[in-house]
């Protein structure tokens, strides 16, 4: 599955001739994909995706349904490993190292790349246990430090004030918005470098959505954030960089303001002005 050195080199050149992808002028990217292709069986879902995701910023991936945004997001922490019939070509780098390199420990990779899903999915356990799951597994904290770590993660997720007296209650008893913030806290407790969010607000009401958005803006100081969203206003509001996916291609990538006000590609313009999608 892992690509060899040659294909990486070739893909590097492919990227430089791609006209509509503006490389960001930020420092070294945290996550970088090079001519990444992905197939579900015979279905070629991603074509030569080359993208450099800058650190300590929010990168939004937008595009119509089924265009490959989520597929790409899930590739970054290798969630496709267990998908039957999935295969890929090209490479994805985390801090300059290939995530597909032989000997890469998927477990520690996923510890460095946290993920939040479309629907809140807390474990049927207490609020405390939900957050403590990651640190416990990864033996990152001595048992006596665990409560501090849980509190820190819950504070980072702006949930502490609401649940500090309900830590023993089941996580599933919280409201939808709180559950999603609990899932964010659960991911943050692992102290990842990158936080992936797959349409984290699509199951939430506008007020809960706003809270999560404020939270993300706060979190980007510490983490690199990649968010898939169907909501273009959301992308425009919170993100620093935007990538537009269309039928498996990364059509355009650049600073959010540029992409939304002066898109280079006609398809991007058509999509953000609501002519399709």
């Amino acid at each position: 599955m892992a690509s060899d050195g040659r294909s990486v080199g070739r893909s590097g050149r492919t990227a430089s001739v791609s006209p509509t992808v503006r490389q960001s002028d930020s420092p070294t990217p945290v996550v970088e994909s090079r001519a990444y292709n992905f197939w579900y069986g015979a279905n070629h879902a991603l074509h030569d995706v080359t993208i450099a995701i800058p650190p300590h910023a929010i990168t939004a991936l937008i595009g119509p349904s089924g265009c490959g945004k989520t597929t790409f997001l899930r590739s970054i922490n290798r969630m496709h490993d267990l998908t039957p019939g999935a295969r890929h070509a090209g490479d994805i780098l985390l801090d300059g190292g290939s995530i597909f390199a032989p000997g890469t420990d998927v477990v520690s990779l996923r510890r460095r790349i946290g993920m939040v899903f479309q629907r809140p999915n807390p474990f049927p356990k207490s609020v405390y246990d939900n957050v403590a799951y990651g640190p416990r597994l990864n033996a990152m904290a001595a048992p006596r430090e665990l409560p501090d770590r849980v509190e820190r993660a819950l504070r980072q997720a702006a949930l502490w004030d609401e649940v500090s007296s309900r830590l023993r209650e089941p996580g599933t008893a919280l409201s939808g918005g709180q559950q999603q913030r609990l899932c964010i806290a659960r991911a943050l407790a692992n102290e990842p470098e990158v936080l992936l969010l797959d349409e984290p607000c699509s199951a939430l009401d506008p007020i809960a959505t706003q809270r999560i958005e404020e939270l993300l803006v706060e979190l980007k100081k510490t983490y690199t954030i990649v968010i898939v969203t169907h909501n273009m206003q959301q992308a425009a509001r919170v993100s620093d960089y935007t990538g537009f996916f269309y039928v498996g291609h990364l059509v355009e990538f650049g600073e959010t303001e540029q992409v939304f006000t002066r898109p280079i590609d006609d398809r991007t313009e058509a999509y953000i002005t609501g002519r399709f999608g």
Binding site: M79, L82, R110, F117, N121, F123, C183, N190
Partner: peptide, 25 residues
């Protein structure tokens, strides 16, 4: 399935996901 994914994304190996999350639930 979302619970399985949540555990895997936290870095749980598959067998531990089966025992700790799926079987417990």
């Amino acid at each position: 399935h979302s619970l399985r994914e949540a555990a895997l994304a936290l870095g749980y190996p598959r067998w531990r996901t089966s025992l700790k999350i799926v079987a417990r639930t």
